[in-house]
């Protein structure tokens, strides 16, 4: 079996007395779509924040493609190939959907500092941004300001910005949250299509169990800062502990 593309060793993070993340050994293999589930407060988002450099762990390490990336800043992790989306939609509201994605592409191409040429003349970046917008079915609204887009499309834009960075690993924090149940599947379908097409490894925090069971290659269940259980969807579905703690709560 090949090496996992991402693994954490005994990752811990405390907030005062609270053990938000309490010794997590997570493994993710290339091209997997792994869902992280668990009740509120189980440490999912903190785990994502630790892996993506938003906060530093108190103990433990994070390894990506064999290298120790513990505590590196988000800017550095982006360069290495890790990108994330946010639970609360985090986009540039006053810019167009096109610019939102285009700037991410330009950042990847190391061209974001170009000050004496017009952004509209950046052919490569514009083509790529439009390609991504098309994949997420946002192309017809490319000139709309991000704040004018309906909520579901803003979530998709948030995710699209991640993909513009051509990451090796993507972490999505509740990509379908706040969206109506009917729309959730539509959004997740578009997201997973792009994930599969581009062959990106992904780690998705998700509450909706239908989505989780439909789309995941593997599921990691967390509880009180630790990994409770992990395995294929069928295995998890049978797991009594998981059922009691997580699924039973019907979140």
């Amino acid at each position: 079996m090949e090496e996992p593309i991402l693994f954490t060793k005994n990752l811990k993070k405390y907030f005062g007395d609270i053990h938000a993340v309490d010794g997590v050994d997570l493994k993710v293999w290339e091209k997997e779509l792994v869902s992280i589930i668990g009740p509120n407060g189980s440490g999912k988002t903190t785990l994502v924040n630790l892996i993506t450099g938003r906060i530093k762990p108190d103990e433990g390490k994070v390894f990506f493609k064999g290298k120790d990336v513990t505590g590196l800043s988000p800017e550095k992790l982006v360069k290495i190939g890790i990108a994330r989306s946010f639970q609360i939609t985090t986009v540039a509201d006053e810019l167009t959907a096109l610019d939102n994605v285009r700037i991410a592409v330009l950042s990847r191409l190391r061209r974001s500092g170009k000050a004496f040429s017009l952004i509209d003349h950046e052919e490569e970046a514009t083509k790529e941004a439009e390609r991504l917008l098309k994949a997420f079915e946002l192309l017809d609204r490319e000139y709309s300001l991000a704040k004018e887009l309906p909520y579901g499309d803003r979530r998709l834009l948030d995710v699209a910005i991640c993909f513009a960075l051509k990451p090796k690993l993507i972490l999505l924090d509740e990509p379908t949250s706040g969206v109506s149940t009917a729309e959730k599947d539509t959004i997740m379908k578009r997201v997973s299509n792009v994930i599969r097409d581009e062959g990106i490894t992904s780690l998705i925090v998700e509450h909706d169990m239908d989505i989780v069971f439909s789309y995941s290659d593997r599921i990691v269940a967390m509880h009180q800062g630790k990994i409770l259980a992990e395995g294929k969807p069928d295995e998890i579905r049978m797991n009594e502990e998981v059922k009691n703690v997580i699924i039973g709560r019907g979140v």
Binding site: V78, V91, A92, I103, S107, K114, F116, A125
Partner: peptide, 28 residues
């Protein structure tokens, strides 16, 4: 005008709108 409509200028506006996200797309 050119500078504000350049990749740099647009990146500045991105920072203005959402400095958190700007960091997470690798903008210094």
């Amino acid at each position: 005008w050119i500078m504000m409509n350049s990749p740099f200028g647009k990146s500045l506006q991105f920072i203005r709108d959402n400095s958190l996200r700007a960091r997470f797309i690798g903008i210094p």
